[in-house]
Design a protein around this nucleic acid. Structure first.
Lengths: 146, 146
DNA sequence: GGCATATAGTTGTTTGTGCAACTATCCAAA
DNA sequence: TTTGGATAGTTGCACAAACAACTATATGCC
């Protein structure tokens, strides 16, 4: 039995990711309270577009660890909210390049401040070095399963 | 600025819980490959019932960090699969007590072995002390946001 | 007893996810 | 140049989560 064997009683909360669920719920509530009419999933797509826009849906899939149908529908909903636009690529007509609208640009500052605040809430009383170890472990877990 | 302030570029994967998502997907695949026709969410309910059955739906809500409608529907689906039964409480007719069927009892050994295996896959090359720190951090995060 | 309030559970709606099947386009090799 | 395989994106389906609104039952207080 390897020394990293997990005790059964602890399986559950690790698998369900209750901590990340709690963070997501808190962030969503703060968006709602601020009158921001977007879901955290939509926000996570905008998050990547603020870093780099004019990317294909496939690139968004890779960046956000989602499959193609999920991104199709998130982009559909973001388009309905007038936050992004699909623009057919001239070089390759299979590709939609996704661009931000002015409305979406306006959201960046406010939502990022709320997200910062949320993570500060979450990590209160957690020493920085332990946060670093936690991130390291989660990254290895992700790589192990990729 | 508190010393636990999170750098913006790292917000995202923490919030989305990509590690726990990856674990969940791996576990679901192993269930499917083993011909087990249940979702991980259904399994997470069974997981608690194996520890203690004959509990109310509300108790399952608390144990699994879900709201009541989610549990209503998970129990609906588990009932359709003939894995649990709702039994009206005699003391309090508002309450459904949830019991496992024989079919569900048979699933315990096999699915727990698969879950163990999945976590061993996930935690390969992660030293035990770092796993412990990670769990500790995630627990504090959860408590901070509760 | 009767009423207000709390609690247990259900239902409807919107949104998101994962999978499979599908269309359209591109590219490379015969 | 045609054809076969790869890639980008969409659609249908089943399942799940969050929220609000609802029903039914229990409880505590007058």
């Amino acid at each position: 039995m390897p020394n990293n064997h997990f005790k059964r009683g602890e399986l559950y909360s690790f698998i369900t990711g209750k901590a990340s669920t709690a963070i997501a719920r808190r962030l969503q509530k703060k968006f709602n309270n601020a009158g921001l009419n977007i879901t955290i999933e939509q926000w996570s797509v905008l998050y990547h577009l603020w870093k780099k826009e004019g990317v294909s849906q496939q690139e968004i899939c890779n960046a956000t660890f989602r499959d193609k149908p999920s991104i199709t529908r998130l982009v559909d909903n973001l388009e309905k909210l007038n936050l992004v636009k699909r623009v057919a690529s001239e070089n390759d007509r299979r590709i939609n390049l996704i661009y931000l609208t002015k409305d979406a640009q306006k959201l960046q500052e406010e939502t990022m401040a709320i997200a910062d605040e949320t993570l500060n809430d979450a990590l209160e009383n957690v020493p920085t070095d332990k946060v670093d170890i936690c991130k390291e472990v989660l990254q290895i877990v992700y790589d192990n399963l990729k």
